[in-house]
Amino acid sequence: MTLAADSASGRITGLAGKCIDVADRNSANGTQVQLYDCNGTSAQQWTEPGDGTLRALGKCLDVRGGSTADAADVQLWDCNGSPAQQWVITQAKDIVNPAANKCLDVRAYNSANRTPLQLWPCQGAANEKWEVAGGATNTVAGEMPAPVPERESDAPASGFVVSEAQFDQMFPNRNHAYTYDGLRAALSAYPAFANTGSDTVKKQEAAAFLANVSHETGGLAHTVEQNTANYSAYCDASQPYGCPSGQSAYYGRGPIQLSWNYNYKAAGDALGIDLLNNPDLVASDSSVAWKTGLWYWNTQTGPGSTTPHDAIVNSAGFGQTIRSINGALECDGKYPAEVQSRVDSYTGFTRILGVDPGSNLSC
């Protein structure tokens, strides 16, 4: 996205034709960014130097405290390269923070001067729409653009629709164990994944898988289940092979949080890896971890009636992938906030990939 050099030198207008403004033309860190009558001052002149930031008065548009929460305040701060200072302007006229997958929003739909700006889930409302002086470049109509490749690894891997740069954008705070190279290596185990149907379907499937993975792991932050009190619950001793690694060895691990001794056995048998006797491989080996996630995605129906892979390629919708992964606990009105969290991740990831999310998003 590039702001015009003329036409008010990068004025950004929104609700009621008012401008994004730095309060009192104050360049101090923490100064509120707000809505205000357009007046041509330097507090309303925004530039974008090509690194994903929006700048005024020599500093960056920033989410206070690096928060990704709803209603997080927006401020001016020293430019530091953090995810809190990354913004994408779409041709749908949203200004999106990819780390939060949320939009720059005028608080409470209030067009009064000095109304603060905040992060809020993208809803297409007028208080989230912005006009950039001179327009923006490098965008896809209605969607968040993919990053412009700057190095070889930014281009999508052969046979995969997600580039390393897009993966980094989706998971800026991931655990180092979840590598992009590990994901690429795992693709050979299930070549139909994100490689079936049209380019749109391929991108929808990649986004759907990664969105569910993000929900299961807190944005790829966790390699193992966080509730240790549950660890001893995942041994089904009635199985003929038992639990050779111990009663408490089969807790959730990896991107899909593989759990239970029988799932470790089935996934290991399918992948040719002895996970029953080596369950820690799912947390310690990135390729193995991703393969177990893809095993479930491509072969298991869980509490649903279809595999997540088939749900996407057969146009059943993202909601059916939720049902196949955790529908018994979340779907049919049981935990709507959990479902919405998955949907929000999915729609955010489809914006990054520049694809329509399709219909039937909830379960």
Rank of each mutant, 00 (worst) to 15 (best):
D181T: 07
N127A: 07
Q86I: 13
C363T: 04
N26W: 11
S158F: 11
T200D: 12
N227R: 11
L57D: 12
V288L: 01
Q123N: 15
Q45N: 10
A267I: 02
G50V: 09
A185Q: 10
E164S: 11
G246I: 03
K93S: 10
A112Q: 15
N298F: 00
S232D: 14
D51G: 08
A28C: 09
T223P: 00
V282P: 00
A126F: 13
S67C: 08
A186I: 05
D269Q: 14
L54E: 02
V33I: 15
D310L: 02
Y231E: 10
D6E: 13
N29I: 11
D73Q: 15
A23H: 14
A165E: 08
A43G: 13
A69G: 11
Q75W: 03
A133D: 09
P255A: 10
S198E: 13
V162C: 11
L220G: 00
S153E: 08
A233H: 12
A337N: 13
P357Y: 01
E143C: 11
L210Y: 03
N138G: 06
Q34G: 04
T307A: 11
Q123R: 15
A99G: 12
Q118F: 02
R351K: 12
K102R: 13
A267M: 05
I12E: 00
Q257M: 14
L294M: 13
Y251M: 04
P279C: 12
D269T: 12
Q169R: 13
E225P: 04
C243F: 00
Q257A: 08
I312F: 01
L271A: 10
P303H: 11
